[in-house]
C-alpha cells in the first residue's frame, strides 16, 4: 500500500496526433481534496477517465487506493466513485431505482441496496423525488443524485468531473455545502473545474493543467505567491480624496497605483508587506483622510491563471454571467 490515495507518473494519452495528456504526474494524499483546474480541452476529463480505468493510458503508470490501474482495474473500480462530467443519471429510472441499481451492481444485495438508496436520498434532500423519473429532475437535483450514486458503496476515493458546471449559483452553493460535508467525513476527492473560485473554495491542493500538462501546483496561497506579491489596497470614504491617496500610495509603493474611481479605491503592488501597511496607515492619518478599508490582498486566482498560461482564465459560459449578476443583485 502506498501512502497516497492517488499516484500517477508520466501519464500520456494520445488521440490521433493530439496529446490529451502529455506526461501528467499527480499525488493526492489520503483525505485530501485536489482540484484539477484548467480551461476546456486541457485534459481534465481524460485524466479522470484514465484514473478510473475507463480508458487506458498510452504511457505512464498510476495507482488508485494502492491498486494499479492497469494490473488490477476491478479493485480500482471497487474503491472509487465517479461522477462524470455530464451527470449520467438514468433519466428513465426514478431516483430510488437509480441508486438501487448502482448498489446492486456493487453487489450490496437487493435489500441493502434499497435501504442505502433511501439513506442517500434523505442525505441529499431528494426524498421527495424518490419515485420521480430522473429525467424530470432539475439540473441541481440531477447533480445531487449523481453525487449520491457515487457514494452508494462508500468508496475511498471520489472523482468528480466538473461537478458544478451548468448549475445556477444557488444549486452550486448547495452542492459545495454537500462537498464540504463529504470532506469533513474524510473522503479523498479529486475534482476538476474550470472555475478558479471553485478550486479555491473546495480544494487543499490545486493542480493547474493546460494542453495536457501540469503547469503549476500547490495550495491556492502558494499558487498566488508564485504569480506575484501582495497588493496594497485602500478604499476612501470621500471620492475627493482619491488623488491625494494615490500620491501617498505611489510614494510608498514606488510605482504608479491603479485608481478605481467607482469603487473609491487605490491599489498598488506592495514590496514591503506589513511594513508598507503600517507606513501607509501612518501617512493617511497624518493627511487626515477618512479611510473605509485598508489592507493587503493577494492576487486572485484569475491573475494567477493569466500569468501561468499567458491567456486569460476561461470566461464562464454566458448563462453563468447572467446568473452571477443576478446573485450580485440579490445580495445588494
Amino acid at each position: 500500500m502506498t501512502e497516497n490515495a492517488i499516484e500517477a507518473h508520466g501519464l500520456v494519452k494520445r488521440y490521433g496526433d493530439k496529446r490529451a495528456l502529455d506526461g501528467v504526474d499527480l499525488d493526492v494524499a489520503r483525505g485530501a481534496v485536489c482540484a484539477l483546474l484548467g480551461p476546456n480541452g486541457a485534459g481534465k476529463t481524460t485524466a479522470v477517465r484514465v484514473l478510473t480505468t475507463l480508458t487506458a493510458p498510452d504511457a505512464g503508470t498510476a495507482t488508485v487506493a494502492g491498486h494499479d490501474i492497469a494490473r488490477d482495474p476491478v479493485s480500482v473500480r471497487r474503491s472509487l466513485g465517479l461522477a462524470a462530467q455530464d451527470a449520467t443519471v438514468d433519466g428513465l429510472l426514478t431516483g430510488h431505482e437509480n441508486l438501487t441499481m448502482i448498489g446492486e451492481l456493487h453487489h450490496l444485495g437487493r435489500k441493502v441496496a434499497r435501504a442505502r438508496a433511501d439513506e442517500l436520498l434523505e442525505q441529499f434532500s431528494l426524498i421527495d423525488a424518490r419515485d420521480k423519473l430522473a429525467r424530470d429532475f432539475s439540473g441541481g437535483m440531477r447533480r445531487r443524485l449523481d453525487l449520491a450514486a457515487t457514494l452508494v458503496a462508500r468508496p475511498e476515493i471520489l472523482f468528480l468531473d466538473e461537478p458544478t458546471t451548468g448549475l445556477d449559483p444557488r444549486a452550486r452553493n448547495d452542492l459545495w455545502d454537500v462537498l464540504d460535508q463529504l470532506v469533513a467525513q474524510g473522503s479523498t476527492i479529486l475534482l476538476t473545474t474550470q472555475y478558479l473560485e471553485e478550486a479555491d473554495r473546495l480544494a487543499d491542493d490545486i493542480v493547474v493543467v493546460d494542453h495536457g500538462r501540469v503547469i503549476a501546483r500547490g495550495d491556492s496561497r502558494a499558487l498566488k505567491r508564485q504569480v506575484g506579491g501582495d497588493q496594497l489596497h485602500v478604499v476612501v470614504a470621500d471620492r475627493a480624496d482619491l488623488d491625494a491617496v494615490a500620491e501617498i500610495v505611489e510614494r510608498i509603493a514606488r510605482t504608479a497605483p491603479t485608481v478605481d474611481a467607482g469603487a473609491r479605491s487605490v491599489s498598488a503592488p506592495a514590496e514591503g508587506g506589513v511594513a508598507a501597511i503600517a507606513e501607509l496607515a501612518h501617512a493617511l492619518t497624518e493627511a487626515e483622510i477618512r479611510v473605509e478599508d485598508l489592507g493587503l490582498s493577494q492576487p486572485t486566482l484569475d491573475d494567477a491563471f493569466l500569468t501561468l498560461t499567458g491567456a486569460p482564465a476561461p470566461a464562464p459560459a454566458p448563462s453563468d454571467v447572467e446568473t452571477q449578476t443576478e446573485t450580485v443583485e440579490q445580495t445588494r
Binding site: T52, R78, L82, D86, T88, D90, I102
Partner: peptide, 13 residues
C-alpha cells in the same frame, strides 16, 4: 451517447 456505458464501466462488474 448518454454516458450510461461509462457509468457501468466504472463499476466493479
Amino acid at each position: 451517447n448518454n454516458g450510461a456505458i461509462d457509468r457501468f464501466h466504472s463499476l466493479p462488474i
